[in-house]
């Protein structure tokens, strides 16, 4: 499963650290970058993330435009970057704030707000919640990998392009958590996709 990524923009070291420690309590999250001055905000466009949490006291009319632009572009093809305000007043109305975090919010309130946002995002992007079970086609591919065939050979045998084989392999690895050919072979034997004897024939 892909991680939800955050950029945090806030002057106060203590608040940044506090926020980070709360975000880290949520599984599968990652802090990509931290900014603590108005000047640095200009570089926001160079980074990709799912969420930007920003204190409006770091914004001016110029950087506001940058932020508006970011909220309209997608991060790594995974949907639009969502912008969360870290201030009480709702200034900069042109920005499409998806949530407000107040300095007085308790940990639970902040956790609930963030988890809801992450949850919504996941359901908006069906791609990111693909089932971890491997498909029938992937089992076909896996079988041939375990038998020691190369991508090219598998492609020819199954009448698909080598590129498609590579894509399948990536998905198999992601779903099973196994990267190497010998590892995949063991998986295939344990799940009776191939027999031990099959592999020995190849090696000899």
């Amino acid at each position: 499963m892909s991680k939800s990524t955050f950029i945090i923009c806030e002057k106060s070291y203590l608040i940044r650290k506090g926020l980070i420690s709360i975000i880290e309590k949520i599984p599968d999250t990652r802090i990509v970058q931290q900014f603590d001055s108005e000047d640095e905000i200009k570089n926001l466009g160079n980074f990709e993330s799912d969420f930007i949490i920003i204190n409006t006291n770091l914004l001016n009319t110029k950087t506001q435009k940058i932020l508006q632009k970011i909220s309209n572009t997608s991060a790594g093809g995974m949907g639009f970057t969502q912008i969360i305000s870290l201030s009480q007043k709702s200034e900069f109305k042109e920005i499409n704030w998806v949530e407000y975090i107040n300095i007085d919010d308790s940990q639970n309130i902040i956790l609930t707000k963030l988890k809801t946002l992450i949850g919504n995002r996941k359901t908006d992007n069906p791609k990111s919640e693909a089932p971890d079970e491997i498909s029938k086609r992937e089992i076909d591919i896996l079988k041939n990998i375990a038998l020691g065939l190369s991508n090219r050979e598998i492609a020819d045998k199954l009448f698909i392009s080598a590129h498609t084989v590579v894509t399948h392999r990536k998905n198999i690895t992601r779903k099973l958590g196994i990267k190497t050919v010998p590892g995949l072979t063991i998986y295939a034997i344990l799940h009776k996709i191939i027999n031990i004897d099959d592999t020995e024939q190849i090696k000899s």
Binding site: L176, G177, I178, K179, T180, P182, G183, I186, Y187, L190
Partner: peptide, 16 residues
């Protein structure tokens, strides 16, 4: 270290 990673996952997730 990739194979070690695999071995761990095989034991954790798949080995009867």
């Amino acid at each position: 270290e990739e194979k070690l990673f695999d071995l761990k996952n095989i034991i954790i997730k798949y080995l009867p």
